[in-house]
């Protein structure tokens, strides 16, 4: 027999960070599109308005990233446990998860990974978030910060190969984040109902289906 249980999966600070970050990144992608292609796209009216909004959203995302980092590292003390894949994950976990997403999911097999508050992410998520949160996001924040102050930070820009290198890196990273958004939102609909994974990111609680542990009278 199975029964439903409510599990407190996502603490409030993480939820606040997530939505702040989500709103910020969507704003950055849309304003960024106008900044790069102003002759084709005009969503926010004046070009300067798009730049100001882009810079503000960039600062919001940078601060929320720092808060996220400090929360997981110092308060929750679970940064490494949650985000660094184990050797087992790398050896077989990622392949097993990919096998599920690309094949066994379609024939109705269950997900090989079961989320718990201490192990929220499957091995593929783990590897993806490791790259995104520890490499891509810091790089896009850093390149964006340098581009906000080109004249005062000229020396640093020259050391890094010049402004074009920086703009190119920032643009390609932004494209990676846009691609990630599509994949991330879609994967979030793969719960037992399309919104099952959205709810815990809103109120913290996730509905889990678990096997009964108590023996029944018949047995």
């Amino acid at each position: 027999m199975k029964h439903k249980e409510m599990v407190y999966m996502t603490p409030m600070p993480v939820r606040i960070w997530h939505w702040l970050n989500a709103f910020g990144i969507v704003t950055l992608c849309i304003t960024g599109l106008q900044i790069r292609f102003p002759d084709y796209i005009n969503i926010f009216g004046a070009y300067k308005a798009a730049i100001r909004l882009h810079n503000t959203a960039g600062v919001v995302v940078s601060i929320s990233y720092m808060l996220w980092f400090i929360y997981y590292l110092v308060v929750a003390k679970s940064l490494l446990k949650l985000y660094v894949p184990t050797l087992e994950d790398l050896k077989s976990g990622i392949l097993r998860q990919a096998y599920f997403y690309f094949l066994t999911y379609f024939v109705g097999k269950p997900n090989p990974h079961h989320s718990t508050p201490d192990s929220k992410f499957n091995p593929m998520q783990n590897a993806a978030y490791l790259v995104i949160m520890f490499i891509l996001l810091p790089l896009v924040v850093l390149s964006g910060a340098l581009l906000m102050y080109v004249a005062p930070l000229r020396e640093l820009l020259l050391l890094l190969g010049g402004i074009k290198m920086l703009v190119g890196t920032h643009f390609l990273l932004a494209c990676c984040f846009t691609a990630f958004l599509f994949v991330h939102i879609y994967l979030a609909t793969l719960g037992h109902t399309p919104f099952a994974h959205f709810k815990p990111m809103w109120n913290g609680w996730e509905e889990e289906t678990v096997e009964d542990t108590l023996p029944t009278k018949d047995k």
Partner: peptide, 23 residues
């Protein structure tokens, strides 16, 4: 990815029971 996966998801929706396929 969402377009391709979503397409096959739609075609194979009858194979999945509600509780067994969560991602």
């Amino acid at each position: 990815f969402p377009l391709g996966h979503g397409f096959f998801r739609l075609l194979t929706r009858k194979n999945r029971k509600e509780d067994d396929h969560e991602a």
